[in-house]
Design a protein around this nucleic acid. Structure first.
Length: 615
RNA sequence: GGGGGCGUGGUGAAGCCAGGAGUUCACGCCAGCCUGUCAAGCUGGAGGUCGCGGGUUCGAAUCCCGUCGUCCCCGCCA
């Protein structure tokens, strides 16, 4: 151990300092003996010293109450202004130290909404440790505050119960995962955050090099290659809470920098990965929610979730599954369906339940469907007499209407939504509608699931094929990949929770021969592969063990576990949608000298924009 | 890159559609009263360039155009 010793803070008891017992009143003064929440279990009559913030003052004239809040909770302090100087000057969020006797509250004045509501501290001494300016917002979750203001004063936001408990939840989840993995003999290994840029994937965050001007580091989008090198190096089981960086546009569940639990194991296949990730997820869920999700999590193939839910990250807390109605409309007179079927397409539908939509509502749904690529949307409402009210009812035979109703298990009042077209587009359109219309019966339910057997390629906007995962993913079959790329599958898998993709992983390619061939099929020329990944291909030539791994987003996981609508609520200092930290003002322009040192010069347009901002 | 919501004393909102004096509500702030409150209560007070710029109008927080900020969504995120 070094010579720095930290006072032990566990259970709120500060390690006793010997000098206090000698009666020193200077630096050795014990600033507090108890934390606020501990007063509930402390013997009446004890003289306690508390340190914390003035949450609320209630000045009755002859007697003053205030709530003293610290990290553990709150306790009421009561005092007589004649005997305790400074009491009437107290304002919200003053930081104070209070000495007083712990007493039971008089009969009838207990506060059962407060954990410490049966006691109160009768103050004999009050010291204002520091005062507070008028607050920009109330330290009280009952008041909604604009998020920008919260971010500008994030340190005050932390004093509010919501953020404080989110930060605790995150810490507990992290600690639980670490403990669970260490118990399974995983090694926590750090990997660099200044690495080489590779063009594929998300946009890299770049850091200019001073020692090699004109060259740049990239911040990692993930520790992918490094953890594979650890496997080559015989580390066997690796994990890391890895900060990752992707310079793409923001969403409520996306930030420039985010944290993944990254793990990898040697001599592993898919089942080993799933079992281990489940251990980590269960540990985190228990730590935050105090519930134990059933394991193993359900496993779906990609094909199955697309066909049943129209999305690769389904929320299965509610039904409303997609149904293939193609056979129902085989030979139909309705051209909207008939043309799609004749063109090799499909007809799928969902039962939206009792939506009670107006004509305008249906128009909006139709717009949604079209914006996701549908030619149109057919809707039908089951009337009291069992007939269908629909713009296209007159084109559908009685048999087709009956089969539509039975195919979607429709009851009176249900709204049926039907889309026709190419399979992929059709299911995705319905998947969006399902996600928009469906509501889980129990919003607290946690529905974890695996999606496996992703395709190797996915279709791009211009009809071409692009790799769906990173190029180190093991395909099911190299032959399929070459000969039937559109349907070839890979050993890639996702973990999904309540309609959110938590993370993904894969079985990796572990020999350079296969890796080279995959690069080739992915359209990366041998020379290019050698130039960019030569060192990695070289590493694979030294007896690489089969290995597989996973990474999931801690921000997303904790956000869902605590019920936050945005990961910003579980990130201490997040950035706004424009990538700005309103508290510190990052990113900011730098001095010309700094740029010179890096061999950089800003474009004329950028300089002009900067000086315009200054003016 | 595109679509949408929002921007009004320190804070949160209403006012905007249908133009007529910075009007209102709650919290906070300042002063006073009050001995059992706990989002204390009562009385009084201070505090705003209605994000910014332009336009329409006799007159703009309100209508129009632009711009900035923020949030949500599409694209993007191997």
């Amino acid at each position: 151990m070094g010579r720095w010793r930290r006072p032990r803070q566990a259970h709120g008891r500060r390690q006793r300092d010997r000098r206090t017992h000698r009666g020193d009143r200077d630096m050795a003064t014990q600033l507090r003996t108890h934390r606020a929440a501990e007063t509930a279990g402390t013997e009446h009559g004890t003289v306690v010293t508390l340190g914390g913030w003035v949450a609320r003052t209630r000045d009755m004239g002859g007697v003053v109450f205030f709530d003293l809040r610290d990290a553990s909770g709150k306790v009421q302090v009561v005092a007589d202004p004649d005997s305790v100087p400074g009491l009437e000057e107290l304002r919200m969020e003053y930081c104070v130290r209070v000495v007083g006797e712990l007493r039971p509250r008089p009969e009838g004045t207990q506060n059962h909404d407060l954990e410490t509501g049966l006691v109160e501290v009768h103050a004999t001494e009050l010291e204002v440790l520091s005062t507070s300016e008028t607050l920009p917002f109330m330290i009280d979750d009952r008041f909604d505050v604009d998020e920008l203001t919260r971010l500008q004063y994030r340190y005050l936001d932390f004093r509010r119960d919501g953020m404080a408990s989110n930060l605790r939840a995150r810490s507990h989840a992290t600690a639980a995962i670490r403990a669970a993995l260490v118990a399974q003999e995983f090694l926590e290994v750090e990997t660099p955050t200044l690495i080489a840029s590779t063009p594929e994937g998300a946009r890299d965050m770049l850091v200019p090099s001073r020692l090699r001007q004109g060259s740049f580091y990239a911040l990692p989008q993930s520790p992918q290659i490094f953890k594979q090198l650890l496997m080559v190096g015989g580390i066997d089981r690796y994990f890391q809470f890895a900060r990752c960086y992707r310079d793409e546009d923001f969403r409520s569940d996306r930030q420039l920098e985010f944290t993944q639990l990254d793990l990898e194991g040697a001599f592993w296949g898919e089942e080993d990965v799933r079992a281990t990730v489940e251990v980590a997820i269960v540990a985190a869920t228990q730590a935050v929610r105090d519930v134990t999700p059933a394991t193993p999590f359900p496993v779906f193939t990609w094909q199955e979730v697309m066909d049943r839910y129209g999305i690769d990250k389904p929320d299965i807390r509610f039904g409303m599954e997609l149904k293939n109605l193609s056979t129902v409309f085989d030979g139909t007179a309705f051209r909207g369906f008939g043309a799609a079927l004749e063109g090799g397409g499909v007809v799928y539908g969902i039962n939206g339940g009792a939506l009670g939509l107006s004509r305008k509502g249906f128009d909006e749904l139709t717009e949604t469907a079209k914006s996701h690529g549908a030619a149109g949307l057919v809707w039908a409402v089951v009337e009291d007499d069992g007939s269908l009210r629909s713009p296209v009812a007159k084109f559908l035979s009685d048999e087709e209407q009956a089969a539509l109703k039975s195919g979607l298990d429709a009851s009176v009042g249900d709204t049926l939504l039907v889309v026709a077209g190419p399979w992929r587009t059709t299911v995705e359109v319905l998947g969006h509608l399902r996600a928009q219309l469906g509501t889980p019966a129990d919003p607290d339910e946690l529905a974890y699931l695996w999606v496996v057997d992703f395709p190797v390629f996915e279709e791009t906007a211009d009809g071409g094929l692009a790799p769906a995962h990173h190029p180190f993913t093991q395909p099911h079959s190299l032959e399929d990949m070459k000969e039937r790329p559109a349907v070839a599958l890979s050993h890639a898998y996702d973990l999904v929770l309540n309609g959110t993709e938590l993370g993904s992983g894969s079985v990796r390619i572990h020999d350079s021969e296969t890796q080279s061939e995959v690069f080739d099929v992915l359209g990366i020329a041998p020379e290019e592969a050698e130039r960019r990944f030569g060192w990695f291909l070289q590493a694979l030539r030294f007896g690489t063990p089969p290995h597989a791994g996973f990474a999931f987003g801690m921000d997303r996981l904790v956000a869902i576990l605590v019920g936050a609508t945005s990961i910003r609520d579980v990130i201490p200092f997040p950035k706004t949608q424009r990538g700005v930290d309103p508290l510190t003002g990052s990113p900011n322009p730098v001095e010309p000298d700094q740029l010179d040192e890096l061999g950089l010069d800003l474009s004329a347009a950028t300089k002009a924009a900067l000086s315009a901002d200054d003016a």
